[in-house]
Every structure is written in C-alpha cells, then in structure tokens.
Design a protein around this nucleic acid. Structure first.
Length: 367
DNA sequence: TCTGGGGTCCTAGGACCC
DNA sequence: TCTGGGGTCCTAGGACCC
C-alpha cells in the first residue's frame, strides 16, 4: 500500500474538439461542387420567401461579413452569389455520430457538448502534453480520413482552457496549452472569449475598465462578488486564473426536449395557436420515444411581437410518456398564457422537462 | 437590416414538510 | 402567546452557448 493512499493526482489532460463551420462543412461533403463557394445554412421561418436567420456559414461566406443569427435577406445582400441551403439536421446528426464514435475510441471519458463539440478526458490515456498533442493530431487525421471533415482541437489542464484553446486557431487548428503556460495564454484574450461571459457580463466588465482576461485577473475577489453576486463573482475570479475543476462527464439523456416554430402571422387566435401546439407536441413526443424518456413537466413557450420569451409550465406527480398529456397540458397552458399576456404571438413552443429514463414510465391509462 | 431553433445552468420567491 | 431553521420542489425568467 502506498503511504498516501488518498492523495489524488490533480493534474489532468483535457481535450476539446470543435468541428469547423459544421453544418456548412457537412453540406460541402455531400455536395462537393459547392466547395470553394460561399455557403450559407439558413433556418427559414416560412413567413415569406426569405424570412428567417442564418444558422452558420463557411469561411468564404464569412469574408462577406455573413454571421450566424443574421437575417437571411441581409446575407443575400452581402453575397447574392452565395449558395443558400436550408438546415438538414438529420444529415448533421448522422455525421456527428460518426465523429463522436472516433473520439470515443481515443478518450477515457467523453462529454458531448453539442452536435459538433465534445470534451475528452485523456488523463491516464497519455502521460504528458507532448503525447496529448500527438494523439490530438491522430484524431484530426482520422476524422479527416473517415468522415471527410476538419476540426479544431484544444488541449489543456481543464475544460475551460481546452475550450478556449480549440477556438484559438481555426479552422483545422491544434493548440496545446500546458499548465505553466495557462496564465500567459489567457492574459491577452478578450473576456468574451471565455465561455460563460457573453454580451451582458462583457459590458459590465467593460464599465469596470476590463477588456482582457489578464485585466480581469487583477480585480479583487470582493470587487467581482460585489458586481456579479457570489456564485458568478467567484466563477469569474477562478476563470480569469484559468482554474476550472469541473469534471468531464458522460451525460445520459438531457434535461429537456422542446420544439419551437414561427407562426405564419402574428396572432392571438386560439385555434391557430392550438394547431401549432398540437403539431409541436407530436414532434416532441417522437423525440421522447426515440430516446426512451418520460417527462414530469410540460411548458408552453410564447414569443410575442416584442420578441420577449415567456413561459408557462405545469408539473405532474409522476413521470409519464404520453402524447395526449403533452397536447392537453400544453394547450391549457397556451390558453392561460393568452389570458395573462396581451400581445400577439410570433412564435410558439412546447417543451417537456424533468426527464426520466425507463424507470417510472407510465401512460395515463394506468392511473 | 429584420430578426431561427435547440439547448444548459442559475436565481429567486413561494409552497410545503420536518 | 409567541414562535426556528433547513431542505426540496415548483414556477418564471434571464444569461449564455451553438
């Protein structure tokens, strides 16, 4: 028995893989003739010919200033000659599975963060960061050969550093940050480069005269807590030092499943809204079935003409998986929503949460 | 310039229980 | 007559991410 049996080795080696301009790259793989042209992947709302927003675009399109979230009409003005394609989520999920399978081979633990990103805990798989770099290069090569796509990889002592490193050189990048390099690496980067610091937090930090992670690291813990509250303040303090103890976790299932869609016209007409709610409920139910999950809570989501999102939800005593329950509850919530909110609705959604696996599943008939 | 859709995590007040 | 504290769950909303 070793003398210090419980002394844990705290040093970890974490890898973050991020597929480059994923949706657009998937389309380039399927249609090689569009490669080299600007490609814009769009979510069409169906209201008029080009209403909707850009989901993502390839680098050729980005050169024209096209960005995710931008209205499609605006993207068309910036680059009329670009190839505009509707999202094809089935295709992307299929290709995502191919990528995740490869990552799984290399990783001790794999945490899929989204359709095109994942963390791998390489601790124990490799002995040092040099070896991790070679392994990362092999992963990139295998994804290129077998899937036909490029990705960017970051390696660091924790998830926070690995993630920011994968974003450092793109596309087709590989950045390794060793523990003793973390502070110099982070210091010149923008605070909004940190995952978790978005527009609002960024603006408030700017008001404090802070633009870079290095500048934030100089603030006192007290200042950060006073400005952002205890939890967020402490997190910002740790993040600015490149400290992050969160583990790489294999997540099973998810916390919620939802569907949302834009109505053809802004309306408060209950018939129209219930039609949409019922159709969305069916889609949600199909996803539950596919993943063999049951739910305890149902929410109705309404986005009014002022673009504010409001929700109403209801929780059952026990988990169920039943289409009629979703339809009925979501419909009732929609009615109550219209009583409480007086603006016309632009978009509506149905969401189930409080998800549970096989155990505890029942249908209404059993009650 | 006109605005998609899918998520995660956190907070805060109130209900309820011990 | 005066009277605690802690924990958990639900609901609603907000920030953030891809």
């Amino acid at each position: 028995m070793p003398l210090i049996a419980n002394k844990k080795d705290l040093s970890r080696i974490i890898l973050h893989a991020d597929m480059d301009y994923f949706f657009a790259q998937c389309e380039e793989r399927e249609q090689p003739e569009i490669k080299g042209k600007p490609v814009v992947i769009c979510v069409y709302s169906g209201r008029s010919k080009d209403s909707g927003a850009v989901s993502t675009s390839n680098y050729e399109a980005r050169k024209f200033g096209i960005k995710a979230g931008m209205p499609i009409v605006r993207a068309k003005k910036l680059a009329p000659e670009a190839v505009f394609l509707p999202v094809n989520m089935e295709l992307y999920h299929g290709i995502s599975d191919e990528v995740m399978e490869i990552l799984r081979e290399y990783s001790g633990t794999l945490e899929q963060e989204s359709v095109d990103e994942a963390f791998c805990d390489l601790t124990g798989k490799v002995t040092d960061f040099e070896e991790a770099k070679m392994l990362a290069a092999s992963i990139k090569e295998e994804i290129k050969q077998k899937v036909g796509l490029t990705c960017s990889i970051g390696v660091g002592p924790n998830k926070l550093v690995a993630k920011i490193a994968s974003d450092y050189r793109k596309p087709d990048g590989l950045t390794v940050v060793k523990p003793d390099e973390v502070k110099q690496f982070l210091a010149p980067l923008k605070i909004t480069d940190l995952a978790g610091v978005g527009k609002k937090t960024g603006e408030r930090l700017n008001e404090l005269g802070v633009k870079t992670i290095g500048e934030m690291a100089k603030l006192s813990t007290d200042d950060l807590i006073r400005e952002f509250g205890k939890a967020k303040g402490l997190w910002l303090e740790q993040a600015s030092q490149g400290i992050d103890d969160s583990p790489v976790i294999e997540r099973e299932g998810t916390g919620q499943i939802g569907r949302i869609s834009t109505l053809r016209e802004d309306t408060r007409d209950l018939t129209v809204i219930l039609d949409a709610v019922y159709s969305l409920s069916e889609d949600v139910y199909k996803k539950l079935e596919a993943r063999n999950l049951s739910f305890k809570s149902v929410s109705f989501v309404g986005i009014s003409t002022d673009f504010k999102t409001r929700t109403k939800s209801h929780t059952l005593d026990a988990p169920v998986r039943d289409l009629d329950t979703i339809r009925t509850i979501a419909g009732n919530l929609a009615k109550a929503f219209l009583d409480e909110n007086h603006l016309p609705l632009r978009r509506v959604g149905v969401r189930v949460s409080n998800l549970a696996g096989r155990k505890g599943q029942r249908t209404l008939g059993e009650f």
